[in-house]
Design a protein around this nucleic acid. Structure first.
Length: 380
RNA sequence: GGGUCGGUACUCAAGCGGUCAACGAGGGCAGACUGUAAAUCUGCUGACUUCGGUCUACGAAGGUUCAAAUCCUUCCCGGCCCA
């Protein structure tokens, strides 16, 4: 279980095609993973995700712990059964929430109305873990690495993420270093707790640690080496695409990659855009996730081969075109821009569903195209 | 016919002598969004603009005033009440 087989490698880049085995099936990489924070990829039914080629989906420890509660999910037979998704699932640890809820200085926070950020002290980070106030009712909770492992084990995802701290892009060196060291310590604690819990479980789970280190070369390398030495089934790269310039993002990736084991999947957290995905694959990234396709869908935007479009734009009012003339997804085969615009303008639920559908399908398609470049003879 | 209340930008609707090109809401136009506090948020929405302003505007026409969407007169239109 959790073996990673490399099927082929690109001759012109570091890209590779692989297979990662999980208790709920094999994940063919590179692989884009849609995000379903609360146990649902917003607006999408599991069978629809299957249809468009989603292999594995994400869910979030923080959100599911708060509601409906991990114990409830466990009683309902685990997350797979609860949400009717029998493919692989990955749960994020809640480390990103420490970042996104923690300070109103972050990029993410800036983009949310200030009204909603009056309560700045939602999160307090200590060496032991993170104290936070629920976004739902303000109640206080404590996440420690051990607690997070217990929650992720109760949820029962195939891949579970270690508890980390994701510092803001502009974190100074001192902060980034402390944060990284904390993340390292937490990773060790996660591993220990996870091994204890995993021993007693019939269905095993894979723990992935998360590399941090801010935007500092030496810290990034140190973190990569530290996490690689843990010898877990896969490794994630976190703390990127959090507001830094793109050159910095790829510089960090290029720096890290040589320090990662070649025979384990590499998961770059939180990207992307079609461009980011292409860049990541080229550099030997095997897995990535992003809220963008579903969020953009809900906000009336769509990926196209000519860039992102706003379907609400007046130019689409009478358009008989599909979202993208090269896309062969269900939405593009059946609906005009004019109709999709109408749905979004009228706030009809079908609109955000169809746009989410197209956006996820579009990213899967990008990956498929990139895979053909790696190994033109393979049949996908 | 008499009385009374009202006519404000695309719509609804504040303002009731200067700080009013005019609150607010809706609608419209555009933008942002990258391990989801996000079906959210931001900007613009009289015209022109070298972005500092300039012009035209609150039913119509006159008038008072240094100054009017705001006060006065007449007229037009609408609601309600009385004949």
């Amino acid at each position: 279980m959790f073996a990673f087989k490399i099927k082929s490698k690109s001759k012109s880049s570091d890209a590779r095609i692989g297979e990662f085995s999980t208790p709920h099936g094999i994940i063919e990489t590179p692989c884009f993973m849609p995000v379903g924070t609360k146990g649902t990829v917003k607006t999408m039914k599991p069978e629809e995700l299957k249809e468009i080629g989603s292999q594995i989906i994400l869910a979030n420890t923080y959100h599911l712990y708060l509601r409906p509660g991990h114990e409830l999910v466990k009683k309902m037979g685990g997350l797979h059964k609860f949400m009717n998704w029998n493919g692989p699932i990955l749960t994020d640890s809640g480390g990103f929430q420490v970042f996104s809820l923690g300070t109103n200085n972050t990029l993410a926070a800036k983009q949310i109305s200030k009204k909603r950020h009056k309560d700045k002290d939602l999160v307090k980070i200590t060496n032991d873990g993170v104290e936070f106030k629920s976004i739902l009712d303000g109640s206080k909770h404590l996440f420690t690495p051990e607690k997070v492992m217990q929650i992720e084990h109760a949820l029962g995802a195939d891949i579970i993420m270690a508890f980390d701290e994701c510092p803001p892009a502009f974190a100074d060196r001192k902060y980034a270093k402390q944060s990284m060291e904390k993340t390292h310590d937490w990773a060790l604690r996660c591993k220990k707790e996870h091994e204890k819990l995993n021993k007693n479980q019939k269905v095993k789970q894979a723990l992935f640690p998360i590399i941090q280190g801010g935007m500092y070369d030496d810290l990034r390398i140190e973190s990569a080496e530290f996490m690689a030495a843990l010898d877990l089934p896969g490794i994630a790269i976190g703390g990127l695409a959090v507001g830094e310039p793109r050159e910095t993002t790829w510089k960090m990736i290029d720096l890290i990659i040589p320090h990662l084991p070649k025979n384990k999947p590499r998961y770059m957290m939180g990207i992307g855009t079609p461009e980011d995905i292409r860049e990541a694959i080229k550099r030997g990234i095997d897995m990535f996730d992003c809220v963008l396709p579903t969020r953009l869908g809900r906000h009336g935007s769509a990926f196209t081969s000519k860039g992102q479009i706003h379907i609400k734009n007046e130019e689409n009012k009478f358009s008989k075109k599909s979202l993208d003339d090269k896309c062969e997804c269900y939405v593009c085969k059946n609906y005009t821009r004019a109709y999709l615009r109408h749905l979004i303008m009228e706030n009809e639920i079908l609109g955000i569903h169809l746009l989410s559908w197209h956006n996820i399908a579009y990213l899967h398609d990008i990956v498929k195209t990139e895979k053909r470049k790696i190994s033109p003879t393979s049949d996908f």
